[in-house]
Write a protein that binds this DNA or RNA. Sequence first.
DNA 1: ATGACTGTATGATAACACCCATACAGTAGC
DNA 2: GCTACTGTATGGGTGTTATCATACAGTCAT
Lengths: 128, 128
Amino acid sequence: MLHLQINPNSGVPVYRQVMDQIKYYIASGLLAAGEQLPSIRALATSLAVNPTTIVKAYTELQHAGAVEMKQGKGAFVAESVGGLSEKQLSKALQQLARQLAVEAAQMGATSQQVIEAVQEELKKVQHD
Amino acid sequence: MLHLQINPNSGVPVYRQVMDQIKYYIASGLLAAGEQLPSIRALATSLAVNPTTIVKAYTELQHAGAVEMKQGKGAFVAESVGGLSEKQLSKALQQLARQLAVEAAQMGATSQQVIEAVQEELKKVQHD
DNA sequence: ATGACTGTATGATAACACCCATACAGTAGC
DNA sequence: GCTACTGTATGGGTGTTATCATACAGTCAT
């Protein structure tokens, strides 16, 4: 039934917590492409939040290309297409990587620590 | 004179753009510890924004431990202390790495591409 | 075609983010 | 102590974010 863990007082918005966790489940393969997600209402009551909050999360995920919603039928994990050109991907990756690198440097982490952490997380998520 | 490039219509707030770029300059060593930053007013007029916007950026950087402000004297790059325990650092790194990994997977990037991007950015920033 | 499930749309509200104008206060050279 | 520089503090305006309550509309098994 896809257990999500929400902290309403964490400062990060509920809809974003939902998004992030579903994204993670999709990336890690726990949610397969085409699989049906919990219905908006079901998830809303399960998390004790308003349905509109879930709508927001699902809608954003749809815009991000991770989810597909069909009226009357439900919400489903999108068939991953990856409509980014090699150039766009490279640029986006660079931006994400820089953010990580700068934050890590700020914290006093060594390069090795950073690389290891990234490899660890990639393992949980990638299927190359 | 520390040239910053700001885009007011990028969606990302001005104060955050200022923060990010200064953080990057510090991390990359272009701004050394103890060095004086541009004064709030000088930077504000240079970027054609209100001084309060710069105040916000500097204040947040101060809270992040990257900058130190002294009334009447100026704002300076903080002596990096790194007050995080090994455990805290590890946890923070994991969180950053996971975010990167999930986003990258979403975009269809391979593990190798991700690692290479991270190594590239670390090179620009680290001094191990 | 009714019932029970799906997603969709609208409108309200409270909080916060962002930016601004302006006034206050410490520091240091003249 | 005046002047010209520093950061600090306060209050306001505008827009967006985040969440809610409630009503609308498509799908499908019975």
